[in-house]
Nucleic acid binder design. Structure first.
Lengths: 223, 223
DNA sequence: CCATCGTAGTTTGTATACAATGTGCAATAC
DNA sequence: GTATTGCACATTGTATACAAACTACGATGG
């Protein structure tokens, strides 16, 4: 918890937002000089920001050639989502027996805010944040911070594609219903069915993304 | 695969080696100026190296206060090793059906080099590298690069403690025998027993480390 | 005597300037 | 006409210099 935010962190946060928002197509070079001008800082904090994003898997550095935004293949996306299933069902299983009333209340509050935001016109921009916050609320009581960190990583990497899917399909309501069901199963302490639902929840999101990607690459070939 | 090595990468590699080698006790501050003098470079590449190590979990940055080497609690070590069991048995299960004769030969060659190095006086320094290379040889055929990357991360984080354990106990020969058994089970395609052995292999290493750590902290309290 | 504030000194964070490397185009040779 | 070489330019990587923030210690007030 840095009490103060350095310029490098500020640039990193904003660049992450822009990349995840889809502003740059995969493989585009991020010129340090241009970004430095954009943010009215020198290239040093920009470099540091890019290095931070590299460690998150959002950009790749090639020595003396610069930073390029990464693009995931369908195979890697499937792999990421398989990992998410493995890790997230693992923590959920550990978390459910530890869930306190306060934890459940907290998760429910998140869902309510969420529903409210949906009704007042879909704010897709920060849907990902809400989404992860809800999952985190269910997972955190397991008391496995390292695991949570890995899950967070995986979510960041796949975030771009989740947003893309949400733009093309109307999956938010479905995900939302599943979230309510998941919370209910967690409340009942039904570990097996909760994990099964979670697995399905993630797997279907994956398939949705792959479908969109393959459709889009077909469109590109036709054009 | 950078064709050329920048100074930042060189410093990062050497610092990683030093940290994992136990040169710095947990929580010590790494002063950029001192390191810059050490390596006869400016502070810029040193900063970048420290940032890289931060993303690997070996150091922590506090804004305007600098970088400190991290120290893992027993709870976090247990968590890391649980994650290793989860992920490594997962890839092993996927890898075994894909293992070609060449893959098995490669793994066996690594074991031989390893045995030879052991006989000619224990080279603990690069034991970790050999160790990971062997495991990687068994896992790689699964064709799951993202998963391998996570496993590699977890190994890096726990590496220091593995070395420490090896210094205090004579576990290398035992690990080595288990490696031979693991290879044999993989060759036979016995997924269940191979995964069970792997799980035991990792879990026992974890217990060994925890034992050493708790003994050491007792010694410190007495002193 | 303890707490709080201010100041000096140290260390980090960032800007500017320079060096090193990669890229692309043009000129030349075949 | 094509391939190769060399040079100019653009971009990254690093050094130096400066600004900002934290720490520690002592002075001042309660």
């Amino acid at each position: 918890m840095p009490t103060y935010k350095t310029r490098a962190q500020f640039v990193a946060d904003d660049l992450r937002r822009r990349i995840l928002g889809g502003e740059f197509k995969g493989g585009t070079q991020l010129r340090q000089d241009a970004l430095a001008k954009d943010y009215e800082v020198s290239r040093i904090p920009v470099r540091e920001a890019l290095l931070a994003l590299e460690s998150e898997g959002l950009v790749e550095f090639h020595a003396h050639r610069g930073a390029f935004t990464t693009e995931l293949s369908v195979a890697k996306i499937r792999e990421l989502f398989e990992l998410r299933i493995l890790l997230e069902t693992y923590v959920l299983k550990r978390a459910i027996p530890e869930l306190s009333d306060a934890d459940l209340q907290h998760a429910e509050n998140l869902l309510r805010q969420y529903d409210a935001a949906l009704d007042s016109g879909g704010q897709i921009d920060n849907w990902s944040d809400y989404n992860f916050a809800f999952h985190q609320a269910l997972y955190a009581p397991a008391g496995l911070p390292e695991t949570m960190s890995l899950i967070s990583q995986l979510n960041t990497k796949s975030d771009r594609y989740i947003r893309m899917q949400l733009l093309y399909t109307q999956e938010i309501e479905k995900a939302e219903r599943e979230h309510h069901d998941l919370l209910e199963l967690a409340r009942q302490g039904d570990i097996d069915r909760a994990c099964a639902l979670l697995e399905q929840h993630i797997a279907e999101a994956c398939e949705g993304i792959v479908t969109v990607l393959e459709k889009r690459s077909q469109d590109l070939q036709e054009a």
